Structure formats: C-alpha cells, structure tokens
Amino acid sequence: MADLRVTYDETANAAYVYLTDPQVRTRSSRMYPCDPVEVDGMINLDFDEQGRLIGIEILRASSKLPEYLLASSERLDADGA
C-alpha cells in the first residue's frame, strides 16, 4: 500500500490529502468544489492538466476525517506536533 500524505491545520480545521507521487511536483490545473449542502461542509477536488485527481481539500476536517488520520498528519499550524 502506498503512503498517503495528509496535511492538517487545526487552527483553520483544514486538511489536504495528496494523491500524487511525493517525489514529483504536480500543479493543480482545475478545482471542482463539491456541493457544500450535499457533503455538509466544503470539499474541493484538485485535478492536473490531464484531468487526473491529484488532491482533496477538506474544510471542517475534524468532522469529515477519522481522528487517527488527523493525528498522524503533517501539521501546518503553529501549535502542531
């Protein structure tokens, strides 16, 4: 199983799940916002120039992602571990 890179900013309560090779720098070409009513929050899907899904931004992350994933994520906030 491949390692999954997840960053989390507890202050903003925002997480980002990277779906790309960590050795390759990939730029987002297009962002698709999921319907906030349907998902009870804001989730954005990032795609590269070839239309491949490269990452997922999750706002209100503590209510959307499992605690173990947030606890093991790379912290971006000043209070992070």
Rank of each mutant, 00 (worst) to 15 (best):
M1Q: 15
M1I: 12
A2P: 09
A2Q: 08
D3Y: 08
T7N: 01
T7D: 00
T7I: 00
Y8I: 01
E10W: 00
E10C: 01
E10Y: 00
A12F: 01
A12P: 00
N13F: 02
N13G: 01
Y16P: 00
Y18W: 06
Y18K: 03
Y18A: 06
Y18C: 06
L19G: 00
T20Q: 01
T20S: 02
D21L: 07
D21M: 11
P22V: 04
P22L: 03
P22Y: 05
V24Y: 09
V24D: 11
T26P: 08
T26Q: 09
R27W: 14
R27L: 13
S28M: 11
S28V: 10
S28W: 05
R30S: 08
P33N: 15
C34R: 08
D35G: 11
P36W: 13
P36Y: 14
V37L: 07
V39G: 08
V39I: 15
D40C: 13
D40I: 14
G41A: 15
M42W: 14
I43Y: 14
I43K: 13
N44K: 11
N44S: 11
L45W: 02
L45G: 02
L45E: 00
D46N: 05
D46G: 00
D46Y: 00
D48W: 03
D48Q: 03
E49R: 07
R52V: 03
R52G: 04
R52E: 07
L53W: 02
L53C: 04
L53G: 02
I54C: 01
I54D: 01
G55N: 12
G55R: 12
E57Y: 14
R60Q: 15
R60F: 14
S63V: 10
Y68C: 10
Y68K: 10
L69G: 06
S72F: 05
S73M: 03
E74C: 01
E74F: 02
R75F: 03
R75S: 02
D77R: 06
D77P: 02
D79V: 08
G80P: 02
G80T: 05
